[in-house]
Every structure is written in structure tokens, then in C-alpha cells.
């Protein structure tokens, strides 16, 4: 069911939704860019529809809203522990098609990877309502079409600005708010039709993996990559975390356990008891990441992990392109196949 909403009605709708939901969207964070006098587009809570940035891709992904960078799992004292209280409100997040696909990737690893779903993830995930931001023209470095993530049906409603009003395709009305505030209209969400960046995904058979893992294509990243981890922290599908047990300074008998995002590119990721650390070589870290995104995950869950949002390419300070690397990997695969 489609609706057109005037700006005022859209704001009334948001106001009504905010009673039960925290609403997040890409917003402008003035002066928060890395360089002086630059802004950042990041995810933040919105109050009005005007807060939403429609025309730019966010630097960070929506992931941090429902899979926080830092999450306290429980507090402990000498003989007791308790989990923190959850905010009772549910969560609405406005995101583009690629990012919605990324949520399904995170669901795979967090809910289906082991014998039990990750309960902390599940708690927040079950509060989540997805709102599709239409994405009629793609951005720099996007390669959603190569990854097949440019379209989705998985949303409560879609949203795009249109001549001062807003058009929504509503799959799930919220207490009849759309029906009461919107004007019925035929609406189909607009999806990207083409990207400037194309990626050819390698179909890697298991017997060729080791030849690819030791291929010389990874060597250039030994010196190019500086192991800053931005590709991971901007990625909507990276899910790795580490644990921090924190003992309060004033009273070390009490403390908390937190989980915090980690990055396979940053030093320390492979540190083990006894001081051993494998994958010191940054080329091998790149190999691990790229194969994980386009091969290992697919082998386990049947679809590639990467959704082609291109943020890793947007943010890399060394101008390393993941998309470019996957294309090199496909070339390398052909080369390796010829030698079999």
C-alpha cells in the first residue's frame, strides 16, 4: 500500500512513532569529520524528517545502532552478576537496500552460526524495524548490483523525498498512522539501476583455495595496508568482537564485562595465549578478510558476506580498493584454473 505524506504529516508520524520507538537515520554530524572543518554523515537518532540525509552515503554503517560498538553484557560483584536493563523502546532504522541485506548477513553469523543464537544480539535485533531508504542513484564505490543487493522486499515501509513531500510503500502500518496521515498513492521504491564499480565474483572451488591463499596477489597489501581497521569499522557486515573485563578503579571487586567490536586488520586480532600471533603480515590479513567476505561465508551460509556498499573503499586512507582486490582475485582464479 503506497502513501504520500506532506512534510508536516511525516513529522507528525515520526512524533507519534517516537512514543514507542527510537528512530535512527543517516544524519549530518557537523564538524565530526576526521579532518578539521569537515562534517561526517553517521547514524544518529532523529527528531524530524529534515534530520535525515538522503543525498549522501553514510560514512559508518547502520550496524552500530543494533550491534553497538561497546555493549555491556553484565555487571559483576564478588558473588553476583546481572545484565543491564534494556531501553524498553523498539528501534526503527532507516537504511538503504545494501544495508538491509547486510542485516541478514549479520543475522546469519549471530543467530545461525553456532548451536545457540547470540542472545545479546537477538535482544536488540528483535526490537528492530527496517525502513528502506530508496536509492535511485548509487554513490561512489557502490557495487550493490554486482552483489545482487540493490533490491529488497524486506522492510516495514520505504521512504523517499519527492517534491517537498515523502513517498512510502508501506508493508506494515504502525497503528494505522500511514492510513490516517497519508494520501493513498501507488508507490514503488526506487532502486539503483547501475553502479560505476563492477565486481566479478570468483566461484572458488575448494581444491583451489590454497593456491589462491598463497597467490602473489596479496603481496602488495603487505606494504600498502597500514592496519588501521577502517574497512572493518565502516563495514555493515563485519561482526567480530572481543571481550573486555573491566574492574572499576575505585572498587576492583566490582566491574563489568563488555563486548567491543574488533578488526581482523588491526594488530592484536590473532594474539594468543603465550604471545603467539599468526597473520602478522598485512597481505595475509587482506587475504583473510577478502576470502571471508566472498568465499568462506558463502561456503557456510550460501551467500557472500559482502553486500557491495563500498564503504571500505570510501574510507581507506591508503586508497586500497576491496572491489579492485576481488576483481584481482577473480583474475587470479582464472590463472590458477589454467594451471590445474
Amino acid at each position: 500500500m503506497g502513501y504520500q505524506l506532506s512534510r508536516d504529516n511525516m513529522n507528525q508520524l515520526l512524533l507519534a512513532l517516537k512514543k514507542d520507538y527510537k528512530i535512527y537515520a543517516p544524519v549530518l554530524l557537523p564538524g565530526q569529520g576526521r579532518f578539521s572543518n569537515t562534517d561526517l554523515i553517521g547514524y544518529g537518532e532523529i527528531n524530524r524528517i529534515e534530520d535525515v540525509v538522503f543525498q549522501q552515503k553514510s560514512y559508518f554503517s547502520p550496524k552500530e545502532v543494533f550491534y553497538p560498538i561497546t555493549q555491556t553484557l553484565f555487571y559483576f560483584t564478588e558473588d553476583e552478576y546481572r545484565e543491564p536493563q534494556m531501553n524498553p523502546k523498539d528501534i526503527i532504522v532507516l537504511m538503504r537496500s545494501c544495508d538491509i541485506h547486510a542485516v541478514t548477513r549479520l543475522d546469519k553469523i549471530m543467530l545461525e552460526n553456532g548451536p545457540h543464537p547470540d542472545s545479546y544480539y537477538l535482544q536488540l535485533r528483535s526490537k528492530l524495524k527496517l525502513v528502506l531508504l530508496d536509492c535511485p542513484t548509487s554513490f561512489d564505490n557502490c557495487f550493490c548490483i554486482s552483489m545482487g543487493t540493490q533490491r529488497t522486499e524486506n522492510y516495514s515501509f520505504s521512504l523517499r523525498p519527492d517534491n517537498g513531500a515523502y513517498l512510502c510503500d508501506v508493508k506494515e502500518d504502525f497503528a494505522g498512522l500511514f492510513a490516517s496521515l497519508g494520501k493513498p498513492l501507488q508507490v514503488s521504491p526506487q532502486f539503483a539501476q547501475q553502479n560505476n564499480q563492477r565486481v566479478s565474483l570468483p566461484e572458488i572451488s575448494e581444491n583451489l583455495v590454497s593456491s589462491l591463499a598463497f597467490h602473489k596477489l596479496w603481496d602488495e597489501y603487505k606494504t600498502r595496508c597500514i592496519a588501521c581497521g577502517r574497512c572493518n569499522t565502516s563495514c555493515p557486515t563485519c561482526s567480530c568482537f572481543t571481550m573486555q573485563d573491566l574492574f572499576y578503579e575505585d572498587n576492583p571487586q566490582c566491574g563489568e564485562r563488555r563486548r567491543v567490536w574488533s578488526s581482523c586488520q588491526i594488530d592484536g586480532f590473532t594474539d594468543m595465549a603465550g604471545g603467539h600471533s599468526f597473520r602478522q603480515d598485512k597481505g595475509q590479513r587482506m587475504r583473510f578478510k577478502v576470502l571471508h567476505k566472498v568465499y568462506d561465508f558463502k561456503k557456510r551460509f550460501g551467500l557472500p558476506m559482502c553486500v557491495g556498499c563500498g564503504r571500505c573503499d570510501d574510507v581507506c586512507p591508503e586508497y586500497i580498493s576491496f572491489a579492485n582486490c576481488v576483481n584481482k582475485l577473480s583474475d587470479a582464479l582464472q590463472e590458477v584454473q589454467q594451471h590445474v
Partner: peptide
């Protein structure tokens, strides 16, 4: 400049 998550901002 070095922070990968914008934990440090200006």
C-alpha cells in the same frame, strides 16, 4: 586522524 571509529572527534 588515526581513530577508525570516530571515538575521537574535533
Amino acid at each position: 586522524l588515526k581513530c577508525p571509529t570516530a571515538a575521537w572527534t574535533r
